[in-house]
Structure formats: structure tokens, C-alpha cells
């Protein structure tokens, strides 16, 4: 068939133009902005002052930024291990032929369709509340008064309380991705291995896990992207003024770009852009390392 180049260009142009405007231009502008002192994200370029890598040096010298990076690393690493492990476990159980599979899958996914605001309020006002919280009542009921008296949202505890609440809602999402991966594995493999005497654990180790490498990679990438964007839960666990337990790089960036809660503080969009570039590099780094460590092109099915 003869190619009509004009038509190809005409059909591709809108998509390419929009892609450049919506993705490429903001990325380039953000990288450029991170090398300047800029008060506001929409400040005209004539008002930008070139400062080179000063914003990155400032970040490197700011202990609060490092605290935010430490928090996000802990959410990503500790939370990630728990979420991935539980998600994989539930996905395997759901695909092991249990009854009411669709019901359980829907229940586990349910937190994802509830607003994060509602979920965080539930955790704060119902589960972690000191007066009538579920944990307080439960530990009182079983006679563990010391645990019942624990202030779950006190400094030191609040980070883990927030991370636990966040992870609770994320398990279902990643379980669904794992589950779709497991469903693609041909049943013949399991049948053949069962005839050869393999049990559930051996089937998981020898068949399911190796064949889920691609899905694991996808899940790690998705988890990294959502972790880097950790913001709403942090805001809800420390309304108005952020604190050391809840601050994440996104919150730090917000403070720099849009000023603090009630106080009118100086804005520095250039510094905020440097935070954004740093986070982008972190995602790329995780993606590269994941690709180096996990090879999923050895198996074809």
C-alpha cells in the first residue's frame, strides 16, 4: 500500500504536539528552573536568576530535606517489602482455587476506591485515637494496659502509624497486578508438576515466582512512582504544619513552591524544581537497577 506521508504527519501531529506540550516542555522547564532562583512556578523567564547547581547544594545542606528523603526511603523499602509480600501472598491464595475468589478480591481492592481523605480520617479518628480508638479498646480488652496507653500518633510512632495505614490500602492494588500475572501462567505447568509430586510451596518457588518476574518488575516500578508522590497521607497525618514523622520530599517541595500552612513564608520554585528533578532521578535509578537485577526475558510462555 502506498504511504501517504501527509496523512501520516496529519494524524501523528496532534498527538506529538500535545505530548511535547504536556510532557516534554514541563520536564525541560522544570530541569531548567532547578538551575535558577525563581520565586513562583509561573514567574516569567526574565525574572529568573541563574544560580547553577546552588539549589541542589542547598538541598544537600538542608537537614529537613534529608529527613524527608529518609522518610520516603523507609516508606518505599519497609512498606514496599510488606506490601509486595502480602500482595503476592494474597494473589497466590486467590488463584489457588479457593471459593468466593471474586468476593475476596473485591474486598481486598476496596480501599483503593475509597478516598485517601476518608481512609486517613478513619485511621486517625477511629483506629489510632487515644480516647476511643480501636487499638486502645482492643488492648484494654485483652488486658495489655501498657499497649492500650500507647499514643500511636506521638512523634516516633506517627511515621509507622502513617506507613501502616497507607500500606493497608495499597496491598489490594498490587495484589490485582500479581493476580493478573498468575492468571496468565498456563495451568498445564501446575498440572504437570502436581503429577510429578510438587506441592503448593514447590509450585510457587519453581513455577509461579520465576514466571512473575516481569510482573514483579512492574509492581516495583509502580510502587516506586506512587511512593515518590507520597503527599496526601502526609498532609492528613499532620494538618496545617508538617512534622518530622510525616514530611516527604513532595511535602517539602510544596512548602517551597506554595509557602507554609498558615504562616506566609518565602517561596522558592527553583528549589522546588530541584526536589522534583531529584525525585525523578530516584525513579529512574530504581527502574535501571530493577532492570539490571531482574531479567524476565529468559522465559517465554
Amino acid at each position: 500500500m502506498k504511504q501517504n506521508k501527509t496523512m501520516v504527519v496529519a494524524f501523528l501531529a496532534p498527538a506529538v504536539i500535545f505530548f511535547c506540550l504536556i510532557f516534554i516542555y514541563p520536564i525541560i522547564r522544570t530541569i531548567a528552573m532547578s538551575l535558577f532562583s525563581v520565586e513562583n512556578v509561573t514567574s516569567p523567564i526574565r525574572d529568573w536568576t541563574f544560580t547553577g547547581v546552588k539549589n541542589y547544594i542547598t538541598l544537600a545542606q538542608t537537614s529537613l530535606f534529608w529527613q524527608s528523603m529518609w522518610n520516603i526511603f523507609r516508606i518505599w523499602a519497609a512498606g514496599g517489602i510488606v506490601v509486595m509480600a502480602l500482595a503476592l501472598l494474597f494473589a497466590v491464595i486467590l488463584n489457588s482455587g479457593i471459593r468466593f475468589k471474586r468476593f475476596f478480591r473485591a474486598v481486598m481492592y476496596a480501599p483503593n476506591i475509597v478516598s485517601a481523605v476518608a481512609l486517613a480520617t478513619m485511621w486517625l479518628q477511629y483506629v489510632f485515637a487515644n480516647r476511643w480508638g480501636m487499638l486502645t479498646n482492643f488492648f484494654s480488652w485483652v488486658g495489655l494496659e501498657e499497649l492500650a496507653a500507647t499514643q500511636w500518633t506521638a512523634s516516633g510512632n506517627k511515621f509507622w502509624a502513617m506507613t501502616f495505614a497507607y500500606c493497608f490500602g495499597m496491598v489490594g492494588y498490587h495484589m490485582l497486578i500479581f493476580s493478573s500475572g498468575i492468571e496468565k501462567i498456563p495451568q498445564e505447568y501446575y498440572e504437570a508438576s502436581a503429577i510429578d509430586g510438587a506441592g503448593r510451596v514447590a509450585q510457587f518457588r519453581r513455577i509461579t515466582f520465576p514466571m512473575l518476574k516481569g510482573v514483579i518488575k512492574t509492581n516495583i516500578t509502580m510502587w516506586t512512582i506512587t511512593s515518590v508522590g507520597f503527599f496526601i497521607w502526609s498532609q492528613l497525618f499532620s494538618t496545617v504544619t508538617t512534622d518530622l514523622d510525616t514530611i516527604t520530599p513532595m511535602v517539602y517541595m510544596y512548602l517551597q513552591v506554595f509557602s507554609a500552612g498558615n504562616a506566609v513564608t518565602a517561596r522558592e520554585a527553583g528549589l522546588g524544581a530541584a526536589v522534583g528533578v531529584t525525585l525523578g532521578l530516584c525513579v529512574v535509578l530504581v527502574f535501571v537497577v530493577t532492570n539490571l537485577l531482574i531479567h524476565n526475558d529468559e522465559l517465554e510462555y
Partner: peptide, 10 residues
């Protein structure tokens, strides 16, 4: 007291 965003959480 909240004038310095880098200090307020501390």
C-alpha cells in the same frame, strides 16, 4: 515562630 519552613517541623 513558623517563619522558617526548614525549622518548623523540628
Amino acid at each position: 515562630i513558623e517563619n522558617n519552613v526548614n525549622m518548623t517541623p523540628y
